[in-house]
Simulated scan of single mutants.
Amino acid sequence: MDALSTAAAPATAALLEDFSLEMTGKDVPRLEEARDRIPAGTRINITFLGNEDLDTRLAAARAVRRLGYTPVPHISARRLRSRSELEELLAALRSDGTADNVLVIGGDPATPHGPYDDALALIRSGLLQSYGVRHVGIGGYPEGHPAITGPALWSAIEYKTAALARRGLSGDVITQFGFDADPVLAWVEALRKRGIDAPVRVGVPGPAGIKRLMTYAARFGVGTSTSIAKKYGFSLTNLMGTAGPDRFIRALADGYDTRRHGVLKLHFYTFGGIGATSRWLADFRTGAGN
């Protein structure tokens, strides 16, 4: 199936509706350059990096809003040093009109810098809705997590979705990226069987250098066997080229059944830059990718 017919396929079109992107606080100039290729209203997630300060994150959220997109600031639980630091962030987001949507994650530090051990602690604090948050994204890990067992991951996502519902907050699940659609679809089906019907945004690596993709995969415990790499479209013996998610998205669309998987969307991790990802998306959506 060529790019044009694939892009026109109903399942692929459904996946590509309302896709979301990810950026860092320092990516504002790249986002401005790409604005003609990104649909208005697109959800843009803003990471919570340890080497970026509050002002950088807030400025990025304001820029996303100014450019006509929906800012989704990340809040990293274990990076927060105090309740007052969380309140300062939320108050600033509310003042800027960028507090409606957030994503809460545990974050990288093995030991919390303050009182919040994980994303659930942020939800249970009651502060999110107090400062105007209405929609909360949470993480999902179809291939597991290098530091958390499978049963603990399932318990966590069940507790978080229940806690959001009790507080009247809507939510969605954004998954870790991967190179194989099969475990993603199996995980989503298992999620639905557990009674969790929140929309799932499947993590997709935007086009990037293969070596860079391998680095991120190793960091996050993503499978990269020879067979998986071949299925995705690259070789582990040649890391000098680049790879895009064409085959992954087609495979996801082929296996997508709304009766078993519910609402699925795509979330692009812009490892190769937001410009490269937006160009790839524009080509793929119009069928000009090949």
Rank of each mutant, 00 (worst) to 15 (best):
A288I: 11
T226C: 12
H74N: 02
S84T: 12
G168P: 02
L127P: 01
R212M: 15
E85C: 04
P151W: 07
F220V: 10
L86D: 15
A162Q: 06
L4V: 10
R30V: 06
G107D: 05
V188S: 05
A276Y: 11
A288W: 07
R43W: 03
R124M: 13
A61D: 04
L128M: 09
L122K: 11
F248N: 08
V133P: 10
R247Y: 01
G68V: 01
A163V: 06
A92K: 06
G221E: 09
A162S: 06
A61V: 03
L153R: 12
P183Y: 07
R201G: 12
A190W: 15
T277S: 01
P29G: 13
R260Y: 06
R247N: 06
G273R: 08
K26Y: 00
G68P: 00
P199K: 13
D96E: 04
F248G: 07
S225G: 08
L281V: 05
W280R: 13
G25V: 12
R83D: 05
A190R: 13
H74T: 03
V184M: 00
G68F: 02
A91T: 06
I196L: 09
I148Y: 11
I174N: 12
N51V: 13
A288D: 08
G233Q: 00
A91E: 09
T42M: 05
S95Y: 05
Q129P: 09
G209L: 09
R94F: 07
K265I: 05
D118C: 05
Y141C: 12
E88P: 02
R124P: 13
T224L: 04
E33W: 07
E32R: 15
L127K: 09
Y269P: 07
